[in-house]
Design a protein around this nucleic acid. Structure first.
Lengths: 232, 232
DNA sequence: CGGTATCTTTACGACATTTTAATGCCGTGC
DNA sequence: GCACGGCATTAAAATGTCGTAAAGATACCG
């Protein structure tokens, strides 16, 4: 299984904005939980233990800042505030209550995405584990470039093997075309060299798959590309 | 909520804004270092090792985003970007390069203060710098620059050997790239001199490893860098 | 000034990784 | 059944990187 898909809780009363956020986040491969007021948001934060919260300040039942304080009483989960209010007092209040970032509406999708990455980067860097992958017995940390099994065995991957796995992991569960893999791993000029892929996929399977002849994680989509399977 | 005076580096070309920031930060009990362009900013970041960087994107000599990338090659110090540019591409570029926050001018003093606190909060929560190290029989105190074995034997390391070990220890368990090691140990102009690393790693292994030909602590990641293994 | 420790530079063999090439396999369509 | 395209597999060649030793340069200290 892979931990790549992380959960995000959206606390926002406007259904329209909520839907937009969900679409946006799901495109980025996050799991999404929604809550339409502070009360339910708090409950959802407790029960779902999401990896990040997106909170609107203007909620119908309580002020978003209060919600942040309550969550901070027991969790350090990253919190990003969305708000139409541009006045400084609100920003400062939310940030001092424990929010990690404050984005004013209207905002662009790319900015939100970038700020999400920053917030998650902080969370994972302090928890030591980077982007963790599990393939068979192997626990792979792409950022730390380390791979070990539960029993302590270590596995060595070469730079190209890491890059290839990284690209596949970025689109986990989805097919990545030959062309995309080649340009991202070997550079823009290498789009024709599909033999590289065969050689390296074989290498990776030999190292990672329990039975390399019957791949369970590194799958071939004939005529299209390769795909890293998503499993439990 | 004043913390033991921490240093902040301001990289900003407008003298007026620089003065304003200095005043503001000194009121908050920070020590302030200034640089008026990217080149000097990079040098100051290396020599002063500030606890946080405030960087303007519109610098006279180079783009601020480049500066961020260069600093990120060897350091995780929090970086806050100040910019008059409100367009999304700039924000996203800076954040993806490794900035932790992005504030658009004009901004209020209280907002800056709140965002500073957030950035520093992240840094301290993930800080875990112990200066004691154990490699094989050797107990090494990086701060005191001493190394002893259990039975009292002493080991002498040269200044460069200590610095190299220090950098590796700061990222214990993780690969440190050639570039990062060279810029931190030999200075920013030495990023190409990978032969230094080979020579000094051999020295260190000869002194620290029980069997220098089969390193157990000072490991090579061919084509990437070196890493100090994390054991027991 | 001479001696010692440290740092820099060079060269080459050993080793790791990437690239190239050749062969066999399997399914599809003719 | 046969030819073909796409993929898997293998091994060897080519390239790149590392470890090693040793000599030259520089700084340091009495």
């Amino acid at each position: 299984m892979t931990v790549a898909s992380r959960a995000i809780l959206i606390v926002e009363d406007e259904p329209q904005l909520r839907r937009m956020l969900r679409t946006l986040l799901e495109l980025e491969n996050f799991r999404v939980v929604e809550a339409e007021n502070a009360e339910r948001g708090l409950a959802a934060a407790r029960s779902h233990k999401p990896d990040l919260l997106i909170v609107d300040l203007g909620l119908p039942d309580r002020d978003g800042t209060e919600l942040i304080q309550e969550v901070r009483a027991w969790s350090r989960v990253p919190i990003i505030v969305l708000s139409a209010r541009t006045d400084e007092a609100n920003k400062v209040g939310a940030l001092e209550a424990g929010a990690d970032d404050y984005i004013t509406k209207p905002f662009g999708a790319r900015e939100l995405r970038a700020r999400l990455q920053v917030a998650l980067r902080h969370a994972t860097s302090s928890a030591a584990a980077g982007s963790a992958l599990r393939i068979g017995d192997w626990h792979i940390d792409l950022k730390a470039r380390s791979a070990r099994a539960g029993d302590g065995r270590e596995l060595h991957l070469t730079p190209t093997e890491y890059r290839l796995l990284e690209v596949l992991a970025q689109h986990i569960g989805l097919v990545v075309t030959h062309r995309a893999l080649l340009t991202q791993v070997w550079g823009p000029g290498s789009a024709q060299q599909t033999q590289y892929l065969r050689v390296y996929m074989k290498q990776l399977r030999g190292k990672l798959e329990p039975d390399p002849a019957r791949p369970r994680w590194l799958l071939t989509d004939t005529g299209v590309g390769y795909r890293l399977a998503l499993r439990d």
